[in-house]
């Protein structure tokens, strides 16, 4: 019968043991020796992290400086006397000042 398959096994590329592995390794080694046209993909936000750190640092510095400036402008006025700075209530501060003047006068 002419349409029976022919025996072409002498042409079989796997007649040698390990021919398949050698072939695949040959291709992959030759590919590895070239620059890779398909680098590992790491997503659309790749690189954002490298920008995030300096931006965050700069923002922190700016915010800190701004907060300090605002607190200076809006905060309570600096104490004018030692008594005020150590928290002596206003009603006593007047008498303290008077006593100081009196005793100072006596010393003189």
């Amino acid at each position: 019968m002419t349409d029976e398959p022919l025996d072409l096994t002498p042409l079989d590329p796997d007649r040698d043991d390990g021919a398949a592995d050698r072939f695949v390794a040959g291709v992959m080694n030759r590919i590895a020796a070239r620059p890779d046209p398909h680098p590992v993909s790491i997503g659309p936000l790749w690189g954002a992290a490298s920008f995030a750190t300096p931006i965050a640092l700069a923002a922190t510095v700016i915010l800190t400086i701004a907060a300090m400036a605002l607190s200076r402008r809006n905060g309570p006025a600096a104490p004018e006397t030692v008594a005020e700075s150590i928290g002596v209530p206003g009603e006593f501060r007047g008498s303290l000042a008077a006593n100081a003047t009196v005793s100072g006068g006596e010393r003189r």
Partner: peptide
């Protein structure tokens, strides 16, 4: 997978089409 950087996937394609490619070249 190969286009995403997985070379092992391409090795599977090589294994799959090796014989057909050899037959056509031969």
């Amino acid at each position: 997978a190969t286009l995403a950087g997985d070379q092992a996937s391409f090795a599977l394609l090589v294994h799959r089409y090796r014989r057909a490619a050899l037959a056509r070249a031969l």
